[in-house]
């Protein structure tokens, strides 16, 4: 058995895929981390206290894993779901009732809720360990941006099932934008933005309209939120996650008592 494994490991194919020998000894365990694409996010060695579960709570890692789960299940759902008034609700109901692997929707939704919670808990522990202190100030700021984007991802996704829960939650949530100072048609100071007596800010040109693509939550909103949810926000989030991880390494690795 072990000679077969050894034969495979020595084969030209295996060696062309994996750039490193098997991590059996100390040297090769370091080489693995340095030369493997997926592992190279890590340093070769870390302080024992820095990776203790009772110290990190593993919440940042869990959040990232949940993001990957959301991306995977989300892509699978995109193959099935059509963001139109005619089909959105029907497709989701079919996912629940008849579709093979319709459980992807359950995992996607519960994963989304879990991700919101783990982001909060990750920030909670980063605050409580004082890990935002110099030199990690800016990575905390990126973290806050990622928090906002996580909430926006969850919020835009909330509309897609197109049921009562969805449209009214989005209606309540987006009604706030009406009251944006200067830019909402019921916000303080919007009267100041007018040209020759004509208001520039109306219910068809204010911040809420920008968000919904219409005066009320409708098909334009569904399309807008779908693109935001599946394409626009994930791209930004991926970029910020990359910077977030890169800064963890550059700012001195996982936080530790100085």
């Amino acid at each position: 058995m072990s000679s077969i494994i050894e034969y495979i490991r020595q084969s030209q194919i295996w060696r062309s895929v994996f750039r490193h020998p098997a991590p059996y000894d100390r040297r090769n365990r370091a080489v693995v981390v340095l030369t493997n694409f997926f592992l190279h996010l890590h340093p070769v060695s870390v302080k024992k206290g820095g990776i203790a579960l009772s110290y990190t709570w593993c919440m940042g890692g869990v959040t990232f894993f949940l993001f990957l789960v959301e991306a995977l299940t989300g892509v699978l759902l995109m193959f099935y779901y059509r963001p139109t008034l005619e089909w959105a609700f029907t497709d989701i109901r079919a996912l629940r009732d008849v579709t093979t692997l319709g459980i992807m929707r359950e995992i996607h939704r519960w994963g989304a809720h879990a991700m919101v919670i783990t982001v909060w808990l990750h920030m909670y522990r980063v605050f409580l360990t004082g890990s935002y202190k110099p030199p990690r100030e800016f990575n905390w700021v990126i973290g806050v941006l990622l928090l906002v984007l996580t909430l926006l991802l969850s919020f835009t996704g909330y509309l897609l099932p197109w049921d009562q829960l969805a449209i009214w939650a989005i209606t309540v949530g987006s009604n706030m934008a009406r009251a944006t100072p200067f830019l909402g048609h019921e916000g303080p100071g919007f009267q100041l933005l007018n040209v020759g007596g004509y208001d520039l800010i109306t219910n068809a040109s204010d911040a809420r309209f920008l968000l919904l693509g219409a005066r009320t939550v409708g098909e334009e909103t569904l399309n807008r939120f779908y693109i935001m949810h599946c394409v626009a926000i994930p791209i930004v989030v991926s970029l910020l996650i990359a910077i977030h991880f890169w800064r963890v390494r550059k700012d001195g690795g996982i936080s530790q008592p100085l």
Partner: peptide, 12 residues
């Protein structure tokens, strides 16, 4: 936390 200051390899 400082007591656990020794380094360990990421793998494993």
């Amino acid at each position: 936390e400082k007591e656990l200051g020794e380094s360990v390899l990421v793998w494993p």
